[in-house]
Nucleic acid binder design. Structure first.
Lengths: 195, 195, 195, 195
DNA sequence: CATGAATGAGGGTTCATTCAT
DNA sequence: TATGAATGAACCCTCATTCAT
């Protein structure tokens, strides 16, 4: 009961750290159990297997992140403001738990295939926003998928550079500049609505 | 002697395909050997081990690509032209051998640590170009590393979207638009030289 | 849990027999596991690896034997009595578990290098006894190391001859004669103490 | 022709050194070939396989040594002189080529089983001498095999101590003392013949 | 709920030997 | 004769998973 959920979180936390440090294939269940303060067999009380553990770690954050982005952009009306809000949200997310972000980056290729149609992904959210922006004439770039790629690329690669030590400081400190770069890249009109 | 170099190429080709399809850890030496039409032990005459095989596959292309980028941008004088040339070069590279590109994307995190100081990387090349552009007043973005991240992000993420089927057509067909997006993102002056 | 300690003993026992029969390098872990009635992987729960298994088998007996010799000679006062006690003890040890002795003989060359300084070895014990004997004027041979070699040689080679079938009967039946030969070889005064 | 025999000797010499350094199982044919300055396949022109190579190395020296001992003791008439001659011969052999002796010591257990009845071994030679000595009343010890074991043990173990660095100097320098110890151990009458 | 011994398949690697060249 | 690429079986070891306790 009480300890049940706590143990499950212990496992997730231990697994996350180890996965990021040594890779998923490079981390054994034995190792995870040890780091979580339990034994191997006990993990299987909480997760059906290693794959499910990885998936749980991935899906929770991935979905949560999509929802967060959704909430953030809905609070804004202009394209520029929506993008800035989402970029700022991403940066906060990164600064808050870099390990989690690194994990997402690490396993995305293997997990993306398991994403069901009903699940909302960050990519979908951003693309919907941009699609609406194009329709409203606020975005110069006509190809929504390509524009989404550009926005994601700018933000993700900057985070990756930070992970590799090629960039210093927090991501949040770069949020404004990043948002501006994104807007410039896809041709967001400064005053899409206003005037 | 049977063939020598031919076998080595067989191994590399088979390994590349399998690595991309199932991941490096998900691909066994037995499997590679089978796909290459030889037996396990024979691989070890050509590569010291699995790690070396991965590294050989990675380093060759990685270095070659850096050199290619270097050559391409040197043939141009303005920032805008340099970026366009490099983006176009990247797109051609991608279209030419998508599997190889996917492999590079897949293993980069694990291999980057092994890159020696004397090796030239694509990131270094691009950053040098941008740094020079900033100095010459051709680039609005003052932080060369951040600008490099933006450029890389736009191009790489677009390629990634293509791999995942979110984008159709060749990368080369998108080269002009990509180059423009990059220039806009980092604030390249239209006429770097001119007036 | 199935058994634990019992399995560990099964492994040791099976390994010992096989090592003696086919040599350490000539015995596979699969073979040991089969003989112990378990599977390969199970061995690694009890021993870190093959080397550790060999070492465990060796060190336990080697150290135990040194202690036994130590106890035996301390119960005696004269050189002649000490040597006889130790020789008799060795013979009993041999007769009790010939396989174990053969194993010790077989692997000693490879394992001796791993013996730490704090470990007491049979050679050390005997040499200390002889050194004391020389000092006390009970031993004619002045070089303690050489005298130790002679004593060890006589006893060990006799055991070896027995193993090869060149000698019949138990070692214990030869203890008195062996002790006498040792004493003669290194010149032990018949009545070290007495008159 | 010319080079044929030379190559064969190269192989034997290289193999001997490597076998002593790393053990027979610890030495690969590839390694031997490299050390001999040829390739793997070439070894098989000179030896049917690894086993035969080991056997050739062993048998040659083993037989040669038996013959040498035979010659040496025949030149003497008394038991004491025969033993001294053989011990001296052994010491010379050891000092002359310690590597060869170590090899013999190393592989004897595995090779002894292959010794045919027609082959003369050092053990047989020594035992014959002692048997004759017993018959002639020159040796106190009545059991010829046991006496042989004692003599061999004293000499061999001393050599072993030397190999392990527990004894300094040449074996030849110890020959007289060793012969004396052997004689004492088995009760050789000082003037077996004489009077 | 937890333990940890056991499974069994598979991992990467080595190696004596063969054989086309 | 010599080469060295290839074989194929065996090597030691790891690991996700199961299950008796």
């Amino acid at each position: 009961m009480r300890s049940g959920a706590a143990t499950k979180d212990n496992i997730k936390s231990a697994a996350l750290t180890l996965f990021v440090a040594n890779g998923v294939d490079g981390t054994g269940m034995r190792e995870i159990a040890k780091a979580a303060g339990i034994t191997e067999g006990a993990i299987y009380r909480h997760f059906a297997g290693k794959d499910e553990l990885v998936w749980a770690l991935f899906a929770d954050s991935y979905v949560a992140y999509a929802e967060k982005l959704d909430t953030l952009h809905r609070a804004q009306t202009t394209m520029a403001a929506k993008i800035e809000a989402m970029v700022r949200g991403f940066c906060a997310f990164f600064d808050e738990d870099e390990t989690l972000f690194r994990f997402l980056l690490l396993v995305q290729h293997g997990q993306l295939a398991k994403v069901t149609e009903t699940m909302r992904t960050p990519v979908q959210v951003v693309e919907e926003v941009i699609k609406a922006g194009i329709k409203a004439g606020e975005v110069g770039y006509r190809d929504s998928a390509a524009a989404t790629a550009a926005v994601f690329g700018i933000v993700l690669q900057t985070a990756t550079f930070k992970i590799y030590g090629r960039l210093r400081g927090t991501m949040s400190a770069r949020a404004t500049a990043l948002a501006q770069a994104c807007q410039n890249a896809i041709g967001v009109k400064a005053n899409g609505v206003g005037s």
